[in-house]
Design a protein around this nucleic acid. Structure first.
Lengths: 252, 252
DNA sequence: CGGATAGCTGGTCAATTGCTCAATAAGCTC
DNA sequence: GAGCTTATTGAGCAATTGACCAGCTATCCG
């Protein structure tokens, strides 16, 4: 046991939660992390006293770092939502060295893994609680997942990219078919607690296989203009106005 | 205005909730129905006093009909779960007078409509709360929806029925792909409150179209081997890789 | 009309809730 | 080691919670 007083900062092990005193930043993070897991498991209505017990800390301490329970929950939502997305997904999807099925499967295996029980449960709780999911979830979902997804699908089918043809409402809903099926895997496991394998990869791959077969055809329908029944009337009108004749489709 | 005192029972209008006195059966039903909507909207943690206010009734009255809040909630779950299933769905799916796509689409439009905002939110709440969803939801789901669904799919593809080949694990997951996608439509609308059309029929039909294309092929893959009903999806995959190259696809 | 049955209410209790504050003590600097 | 800063605590408050009960009164029957 040497005497480290000569060093300005002896290894403080700031990540050790059992320390009596922590730096404000570390303590705030500590509370935030535990609160996320705690509220995900036990529900947002569970008392701050129980959370404090889990933290091994006096209940009053929580209020030194967060002005109210509401604000703590909001912060939990904020950070959990922000953590979900991975910008690498765009590149992963665009990498045509691998077959489309493999890329999409990898993407959604990664998505489910990144979400995990905590996020899945928190997201559903946030939705029920009236958090602004449309802004917090739907918007980044479209930009960081669905759009790259449709781009890859289009490229795979030899269809024009977004520069030449903006994303169609029907395309978003098409991508949502797979997204919904995969997310529902997580909901079955983490919300409904149904018997599911530890590793959902094989189930994800099944969803992807089923989806891709139908999606290629549907995408072709959407772009050759025959089956546009999934679009709203207004969108159809706008779309018809935009293109004078039917665009010649040179692809197979 | 005739004097109805001579009649043993003048029209009592027992369904009028504003009446001061109701028969125990009617009052219990009244409380149960309102509680379902109330807890679905506001959450299970909302106070019985607020529920009583919505009922236009003293809070103590609830406890005359239900021994505790917990028991009331359980009863709400029980009745809501029971109401979901419709035995006509089996016949609807088996009616080969209509094309498969039409039958499946009608089924899931009916399913979503029957569920509605109330059930969707209550189901998710029940899952988060730790209600036994595997028994209450998953089992009837398989029997009343997925099994008839697979039966229709098999018949459509000229595959043997359940008498000759029991349902495969992979088939259930296959049907779950569509189920998940459709349920996620309801979750987007009723839980996440995302902007969705009033009528989800068109979106359901899109999901069904996409699903059926892929499902027919996947079903053929599942059935082209020997009896694989006891194998997991993973085992099936491994086995498929071991076998000859890609399976010949005889369908259009 | 008048008594009796029973559906219903107002009032109340113990426990729990979010939140506050003065007091304590951990860990830094000299 | 002394002293100072401040992270942490325990006690406590007002409001809300689930649950209960004695009494009120709407409704029926003779």
């Amino acid at each position: 046991m040497t005497k480290p007083s000569s060093l300005p900062k002896p290894p403080p092990a700031q990540d050790d939660a059992r320390r009596k005193r922590m730096t404000p930043a570390a303590r705030a993070q500590h509370i935030l992390d535990e609160a996320a897991a705690f509220f995900a498991e036990r529900g947002l209505a569970t008392s701050t006293r129980e959370l404090a017990a889990r933290l091994g800390v006096a209940q009053a301490l929580i209020y030194r770092y967060f002005p109210s329970k509401r604000m703590l929950i909001d912060k939990v939502f904020e950070t959990t939502f922000a953590r979900l997305w991975d910008d690498d997904w765009t590149m992963l999807l665009a990498n045509r060295a691998q077959p489309l099925e493999e890329r999409v499967a990898r993407l959604y295996v990664a998505y489910l893994e990144r979400a995990g029980a905590l996020s899945v449960r928190l997201f559903v709780r946030a939705g029920l609680e009236g958090a602004d999911m449309a802004r917090r979830y739907s918007v980044p979902l479209t930009e960081k997942l669905l759009r790259p997804m449709i781009g890859a699908l289009r490229a795979d089918s030899g269809l024009p990219d977004f520069d030449q043809a903006p994303m169609l409402r029907g395309e978003r809903e098409l991508a949502m078919a797979l997204h919904g099926a995969v997310v529902f895997l997580g909901i079955r496991k983490h919300v409904y607690a149904m018997p599911m394998p530890d590793d959902l990869s094989d189930l994800v791959r099944l969803q992807v296989r089923v989806f891709l077969d139908g999606a290629r055809r549907e995408l072709a329908r959407l772009h050759d203009g025959t089956a546009e029944d999934s679009l709203t009337v207004q969108q159809l009108d706008r779309r018809r106005q935009r293109r004078a004749p039917a665009p010649p489709d040179s692809t197979a």
